[in-house]
Nucleic acid binder design. Sequence first.
DNA 1: CGGTATAACGACCAATCGGTCGATTAATTG
DNA 2: CAATTAATCGACCGATTGGTCGTTATACCG
Lengths: 203, 203
Amino acid sequence: MAQNADLEAIRKAQIIDAALRTIAERGCANVTMDDICKAAGLSKGGLAHYFKSKTELFKAVFLEFFQRIFLRSDLTMSAFDDPLEQLLSFDWLYNARDPDVETGYPILYDFMSMAVHDQCYRDIFRDWVNNWVKLLKKAIELGQTHGRFRNVDPESAARTISAIYQGMATRWYLAQSEHPTEWAVDSVRRSITGLLNSFENSR
Amino acid sequence: MAQNADLEAIRKAQIIDAALRTIAERGCANVTMDDICKAAGLSKGGLAHYFKSKTELFKAVFLEFFQRIFLRSDLTMSAFDDPLEQLLSFDWLYNARDPDVETGYPILYDFMSMAVHDQCYRDIFRDWVNNWVKLLKKAIELGQTHGRFRNVDPESAARTISAIYQGMATRWYLAQSEHPTEWAVDSVRRSITGLLNSFENSR
DNA sequence: CGGTATAACGACCAATCGGTCGATTAATTG
DNA sequence: CAATTAATCGACCGATTGGTCGTTATACCG
């Protein structure tokens, strides 16, 4: 009866948060509804009251996840004034002690493997990438108003930059012993500046 | 009695091949032993004769998969003489009609999501990356004997290059409409040459 | 031709899990 | 204080699935 009209929002957030942690820990394929119920402090029926099916819950979880990452990216980036520094402001992706990183990577890899077989997830992925690209693009265009990044196509380069970040991330996260944080940070830095210079000199 | 001592090898290859195709099609999480049995033309008991458990089969499948990709990479790379062309010889990764690509990406993403939660899979991943890196490293060192790639640390740069390839691959495969093949090929080319130049000019 | 060991079969079992549903509790309203 | 409706519970069901096991078929050997 909605004694508190916000209860639904509170409960949903609580469930999504529990699911996020549980999925990160166990992996999508192994997580059961019971696991999530326990983590959320709810019974099966109680949870079913808010999410009718497992897939519905999962979709909500992933949407929330990508939203968080985007907000985090936006926040971190806007802490810099220099456009190039903005483009290079994603070092936090390679900080193992960052809470967003700890849960983020497991979630992201599970998500991508599901996106391979599910158009709906691919759409979420695309939207997230597009949002990220929009941030990077803005930084490039800002630089161009100051005469930098000459000949760079902002959209295309932004996509390349975000892909570079993710490429290093995969190595850094899955084969950490061979790919320490310094390697990832340095590689990203060199690749991105190198990419931008490749436009400047050519064409 | 091994009327044909090779029978075991033949059957195992047959099963692994069927599993490879089935997993690529349905995804690790959804594939059942029955699916694989049907694809392999064997019964449950027949398959169990060669692989005692699902996880044992999966591990064999992934090992075979990475072996194939490595051989393919080695083969393609060695078709070029120029070291830089060797480093840039992985365009086939972005050819949607390539059979290795068609099955490869689904397998790879499933694999990575499992590697997150399973050390054994991370080891396989690390070995594969190391093998790939070895190829790239050789090309860089070959170039250096001719005075090119000055100041480049071959090992570190090789890791960066392979990560760049994979970064573009993720975008190209999961969000194709926004990341066409030309974008991927061009991005890789610019990023890698840019990376190598970043060493040449600095330090 | 038996005898024997391998190869292959498929019915069956036990365990897991997502979702349902009737019951119970709690809160709001008239 | 009823009455009503939302919120929560957890036992239960049906479906799925990995693995087993007794059985059959096949091929080689002595």
